[in-house]
């Protein structure tokens, strides 16, 4: 029996988005819409952070409900079906890109207002499909700044088999009193780059990393022979 579940997603207790899980479409589908012209069988209200934990099976709908982290209106019995369906749609995908994205979404904050956060998620997917971009141990650190202040840090690394094996991320928002301690991983190349410049590198074909370095828009320290390899990210 098909059902539709409306999910009201909150960010800091304020309504931020409405999603519908529609199983009247074969296989089930999540759609972000303002409203749906069909009968909704249940409405969930949940914080964005908890919703992602729920989708990845890190918490169950029953747990979220019992702990008061999710409100449900309508058919409570749908929770079990929902859990099973979400598992089928999401959790069976064990692709390398989704595993890294899952780790970032589950274990780290996403700093809102920072374009590079979303761009980096795209880059992770690209990196996961790129073999041997970097030799094992040649980790790269990106420090993303806005108006000269560091906002986020990303470290990427490959293993000896030539696959992406490390993506670490932290943002100032979640750090201790806004002070960021560098991620404790040895790196071969450290890049300090503005959020806008980083985004331009990704979207603007007329702007590349070497230009950005030459014009002092980007500070790079370490093994500069890695720069051409990093260009492939963008």
């Amino acid at each position: 029996s098909a059902f539709i579940v409306q999910v009201n997603v909150l960010k800091d207790k304020t309504h931020a988005a409405t999603w519908f899980l529609n199983t009247r479409i074969p296989g089930g589908r999540f759609e972000r819409m303002d409203s749906i012209d069909q009968k909704v069988d249940a409405t969930l209200t949940i914080e964005d952070e908890d919703y992602v934990l729920l989708l990845f099976g890190k918490i169950s709908p029953q747990f979220a409900f019992l702990k008061g982290r999710m409100k449900i209106k309508g058919d409570v019995l749908l929770l079990q079906k929902l859990n099973r369906l979400v598992g089928k749609i999401l959790r069976t995908r064990e692709d390398l890109d989704l595993i890294f994205v899952r780790d970032i979404l589950v274990n780290s904050k996403i700093q809102s207002g920072l374009q590079s956060e979303i761009v980096f998620i795209e880059i992770i997917q690209r990196l996961a499909r790129m073999q041997n971009l970097l030799p094992s141990g040649d980790n790269i650190r990106f420090n993303i700044v806005v108006n000269g202040q560091q906002e986020t840090e990303w470290v990427i690394g490959y293993n000896e088999a030539g696959n992406l094996s490390m993506v670490k991320h932290q943002c100032r928002m979640e750090s201790n009193e806004g002070k960021m301690t560098p991620i404790q991983v040895p790196t071969k190349l450290d890049i300090i780059i503005d959020d806008n410049d980083f985004t331009s590198l990704f979207y603007n074909t007329n702007f590349n990393l070497q230009n950005a370095i030459d014009s002092n828009r980007v500070q790079v320290t370490g093994d500069l022979t890695l720069v051409p390899k990093i260009e492939l990210l963008f």
Partner: peptide, 14 residues
């Protein structure tokens, strides 16, 4: 607006 669920569903669609 920096919603994790938006990021996740974008990835799922790609």
């Amino acid at each position: 607006d920096g919603l994790k669920c938006d990021v996740l569903f974008d990835v799922m669609r790609s």
